[in-house]
């Protein structure tokens, strides 16, 4: 994979087509720099999540020109974070696992950190996973539907957390929530299959 020469640019893709056995989405052209927040919007089934997964090597890139900075550290919040039925870890241990315990967590989250993660509500668990993704070391943060399971108040909290951490990395967000993307993103790229 060729390396980008511009110091601030983390990766850039031209006419990017991604999928699994067959192409699902694209072509899409996109550049992401440190400090930037870029949204991927589009209807359900357009292949937004497939695009993210192809960046991580979890889906296939079928065509396009692609450059990235060498040795990028990726952090990824999947659309459905893994949540075992029984998981006797507390929130603090979960943050430590992802080296996300070096920053003081937001107050709303800090109050829940001594609880077992399998006893958090769906929204609380989503926020914990989001902070695990945002607060650890990384160059590129990929968030797939970060507002899943969140009510409007928690959605506001998620938006603020993403904005607070924006300078630490480049952020790419997939969401079906146009208002959320408008609130946090510098620009959006429309995706179609």
């Amino acid at each position: 994979m060729p390396a980008v020469s511009d110091g601030a640019t983390l990766f850039q893709a031209q006419q990017w087509v991604a999928g699994y056995a067959d192409p699902v989405v694209g072509p899409v052209s996109l550049t992401l720099s440190r400090g930037e927040i870029v949204g991927l919007s589009g209807p359900n089934g357009a292949g937004k999540s497939t695009l993210l997964r192809s960046l991580l090597g979890l889906a296939r890139i079928h065509a396009g020109h692609w450059e990235t900075r060498p040795d990028l550290v990726w952090r990824y919040l999947p659309q459905r974070p893994v949540r075992p039925a029984q998981a006797p870890l507390n929130g603090t241990e979960m943050l430590r696992l992802m080296q996300a315990d070096r920053l003081p967590p937001p107050a709303r989250l800090a109050a829940k950190l001594d609880r077992r993660v399998d006893r958090l509500s769906g929204g609380e668990y989503q926020l914990l996973q989001l902070w695990c993704t945002l607060a650890g070391p990384g160059d590129v943060v990929l968030l797939d539907e970060p507002t899943n399971n969140l009510d409007p108040e928690h959605g506001q909290f998620a938006a603020q957390a993403i904005l607070d951490r924006r300078s630490a990395h480049g952020t790419l967000i997939v969401s079906h929530d146009a208002d959320f993307l408008a609130r946090v993103c510098d620009r959006c790229v429309e995706v179609s299959s």
């Binding site: 979890l58 952090r75 696992l97 992802m98 695990c132």
Partner: peptide
């Protein structure tokens, strides 16, 4: 277990 894609994504 909790972040299976993290290790894969970072090879």
């Amino acid at each position: 277990r909790f972040f299976p894609d993290h290790e894969l994504a970072n090879r």
